[in-house]
Each structure stands twice: as structure tokens, then as C-alpha cells.
Simulated scan of single mutants.
Amino acid sequence: MASGGIPMDAVVTMSVLLEGVVYGFSVLMFIGTIWALTYNCRVQDINRPVAVVAVLLLILSTAHIVVNIIRIEDGLVKYRDTYPGGPSGFFADVSQDTFVIKNAFYVVQTLLADGVVIYRCHAVWQSLLVIILPCVLWCSVAVTGVYAVYSCSQASSSSIFAKALAQWVMVFLASTIATNLLSSGLLAYRIWTIERAVSTVRASKSNVMPIVRVLVDAAVLYTVVLFIALVCFVCSNTGETVVVDMAMPIMSIAFYMVLIRIAINRNTPSYLSTTREISSKAEQGHSRQYKMKPLQVHVRTLTTAT
């Protein structure tokens, strides 16, 4: 019996089922993302780095659920009658290879997703000073995540809530929440301020604000899931297993949401063209305000008699 009151075999079974449902949605979102990136585009015009990140997220999510299925088969079938404590004892053992591997996939995907958000933030702000704190938080995510996975592989305790291990996991979750909120907030704020500056001289309706809303929605979705997982860890509740496993495909969905929205709005003028629009509007305003009139010049010829 786990500390949360529910047997671990029931918790793990539920987590795999729910992860499978959310994973199915993430696959559909991936297909939509690839379609949006390639629709009416030549091969050389496809954003290859973005496509690579989308594929990597799908691969990591797929690998995670495959390892979880193998873990279910090991605990409920292969070692059901031979492992001390039965299936519940097997699933509670954090030193199992399948447990370590699936959490390693989770850490790698978290680093990838947070790194993409930080890169977007830098691309929009065009300043290294803005991303210093997000980068420090990202390094904290990397250090605590790697150490937590290593601690699992070397653990002598059979509980994820053992103090020596749980404190690293909680710092890991808190760091990735802070990284995601800060980077997404800076990104959304920058886009909003640019849009507000342009809206004063734009005649057409803005199509940038939907991207800001999607950025906020994706950040809130991911943050809520991680916050629930953190609360479960603080309360030593086995529900954290369900939430953390579901967080893998949810991370991908949050990323695909933004990509699809940007792909739909890919005809939106870039920041450079927006700046040119502001300049041209300003120049037109000045020319209207100070309209030049023809200047008549009269030349008189003076003849001097000696």
C-alpha cells in the first residue's frame, strides 16, 4: 500500500491509461503541426529546426509510453508472483530500470521544451540580458533532473517520497514551473508591446494577438499540470505518478498549440516589416502636416553706370 492510500499497481495502471488517451491527442496535434508547417510550402521554405523539435517531442513521448507499457507488463505479469511485495512492491521500487529510463525521457523532454521557450524569448527580445534568469533556471532544471534520475538508479529506498530523493524532484518541478512561466511571460509581453505600438498606425485588424493568447493558454496548461504534480509530491500522494506521466504528452500538446497558431498566421508581417510600416506611416503623416508649396524666386538685374 502506497503512502497516498491507493495500491501502486492501481495507480500505475491508471496513469498508463490516461497517458495513452492524452498521447492520442498529442499524435493528432503532431499531424496537424506537420501539415501546418508544410502546407503550400516548398521544401526549402520549411522551418527545419521547428520540425525537428516537433519530431523529437513525438519520439520522446512515444518512448515514454512504450517504457510504461513494458513496466506494466513486468509488474503485473512477469514478476507478479516472484517480486517481494507483488506488483505493488515492484511499482514502488524506484531503482527499477524501467522507472529510471522513463524518468530520464521525462527530464530530456522537459529540457527540450523549456529550451525552446527560452530560445523564442531571445528571438523576440533580441537581447541576452533578458534570458539570463531563464537560462539560470534552465540549468537548475538540468542539474536537479539529472541528479534525481541518478538518485533513483542508486536508491536504497523503495519510495519516491524518501526525503533524499523527493527534495530533488520538488526542486526540479519548481524550477521548470518558474522557467516556463518567466519565459512565456516575457515572450507574451514583448509581442503584446510590439503589437500595441503598431496598432496606432495599422489600418487592418491585428492577427498577432491570437498568438499571444495561445502562448498564455499553453503556459497555463503546462504550469497547472506541473503545479498539481508538485502539490502531490509535497503531500506524498501517489497521484503524482498519474500527473507526471500525463505531463509528457501534455508538454507536446502545449508546444504543438503554439506551432499550429504561428503556422496559421505565418503571413503575419514580421517585426522588421512592422517597423517599416510604422516608419512609412510616420513619414506620410509628416508629409501631410508639412505639405510643401511651390517657391517663387524673383531675380532682379542691377546695371551700374560708370
Rank of each mutant, 00 (worst) to 15 (best):
1 M>T: 06
2 A>D: 13
4 G>W: 01
5 G>M: 09
11 V>Q: 10
14 M>A: 15
14 M>F: 15
21 V>L: 14
23 Y>K: 00
23 Y>I: 02
25 F>M: 09
30 F>L: 13
37 L>A: 06
50 V>N: 08
51 A>F: 03
56 L>F: 05
59 I>L: 12
60 L>Q: 01
62 T>F: 02
65 I>Q: 07
67 V>Y: 03
71 R>W: 11
71 R>Y: 10
75 G>S: 11
77 V>F: 11
79 Y>I: 09
86 G>K: 00
86 G>R: 00
86 G>Y: 02
86 G>E: 03
88 S>W: 00
98 T>Y: 00
101 I>F: 12
106 Y>V: 06
109 Q>F: 12
110 T>K: 11
113 A>F: 05
115 G>V: 07
119 Y>S: 13
120 R>I: 01
120 R>N: 06
122 H>Y: 10
125 W>Q: 01
128 L>S: 08
134 P>G: 09
135 C>Q: 06
138 W>K: 00
142 A>T: 12
155 A>G: 03
165 L>H: 14
170 M>P: 01
174 A>C: 14
177 I>Q: 10
179 T>S: 15
182 L>R: 06
185 G>C: 10
185 G>S: 13
186 L>V: 06
186 L>F: 15
186 L>Q: 08
191 I>R: 00
191 I>T: 05
191 I>G: 11
194 I>H: 15
198 V>G: 08
199 S>I: 14
207 N>R: 09
217 D>P: 02
217 D>H: 02
218 A>L: 04
223 T>R: 04
227 F>T: 14
228 I>L: 07
230 L>Y: 06
231 V>F: 04
239 G>P: 01
245 D>W: 03
246 M>P: 07
247 A>P: 02
252 S>L: 07
253 I>R: 01
254 A>T: 07
255 F>G: 09
257 M>A: 09
259 L>Q: 04
261 R>P: 00
270 S>T: 15
274 T>N: 15
279 S>G: 04
279 S>N: 11
280 S>H: 09
287 S>F: 13
289 Q>A: 11
290 Y>H: 06
292 M>S: 09
293 K>W: 13
295 L>R: 10
296 Q>S: 11
301 T>E: 12
301 T>P: 03
301 T>L: 10
304 T>A: 01
304 T>K: 00
